[in-house]
Design a protein around this nucleic acid. Structure first.
Lengths: 139, 139
DNA sequence: CAACAGTTTAGAACAGTTATAATGTAGAAA
DNA sequence: TTTCTACATTATAACTGTTCTAAACTGTTG
């Protein structure tokens, strides 16, 4: 929930030029009460609903990748024909309802911290992500 | 580690006609000491190395999906431009080294069972998968 | 063996994503 | 403010993994 000048500052401070496309995308992504999940396709629709100046698809992809690299977005590891992103960059996990193709946050407090008793020599852990797949309970 | 007649039986008992393509794919996938991970591309190469009769790409896709549906393979949820499959269908988790694009099993005993204290009403849990992303440790 | 449903096949089609190269623009310097 | 330049945007082409199509083939059943 920031205003434009704060997005401009945020972009500039991370070495991204605050273009009007990037500011608009910031608004769509971050000017919300709650965080949310999205695919590029859904984001494009959301953008076009909220502005008359269309943003090209390539720019959306570029911007999302830039934001992901800067840590403003997380990509959610999931088997899907398209990539899912999350505006919630805090440490948390997900339910995935494959039938509805619906992603739901699992609050960090609702998952016992995952302990891993083995390591890969020479590598350090970057992230630990839990994906809980659910299906309709017909019992 | 089965011989052909056992694969024929396995296929037939799950309602899949034991065609020579499927039997060959069974051999490549299951006639090994250790389980392994693969992409369709890698599998196609493996198949063509081990036989002179080429199997069409469409058949490989069909067969892998059939095997996955029958529970002979698991798909590994990962953000990648291609799907990863695992011949190890027991419950276990993975390290993913993004720089090498390399998947490594985490033995079930090496992960504290993941406890989830929340549920989605009307849905039951189908699987719980942990993906640990690692990177080179430059410290 | 005949008949049929299931399977394989090559290639076309498709969807998501990335690359290209021309045009535009933010920011710095004069 | 004007000029300059590196960075961004754009439309579109290209690319990649996967799915579809429809014709030919084959395992199974009677």
């Amino acid at each position: 929930m920031l205003n434009n000048s704060q997005y401009i500052e945020k972009l500039r401070s991370s070495g991204l030029r605050p273009t009007k496309q990037r500011i608009k995308i910031c608004e769509v992504l971050f000017n919300t009460e709650k965080t949310f999940h999205f695919t590029i396709n859904e984001l494009v629709k959301k953008i076009s609903k909220s502005t008359n100046d269309k943003i090209s698809l390539a720019t959306v992809y570029n911007t999302i990748h830039a934001f992901k690299n800067k840590g403003y977005l997380k990509e959610i590891p999931i088997n899907s024909d398209q990539s899912y992103f999350d505006t919630n960059t805090s440490h948390h996990h997900h339910f995935y309802d494959e039938s509805q193709r619906d992603l739901i946050d699992i609050d960090e407090a609702d998952v016992e911290p995952v302990k891993i008793y083995t390591r890969i020599p020479g590598k350090k852990i970057k992230s630990v992500e839990v994906l809980v797949k659910v299906e309709d309970d017909k019992s």
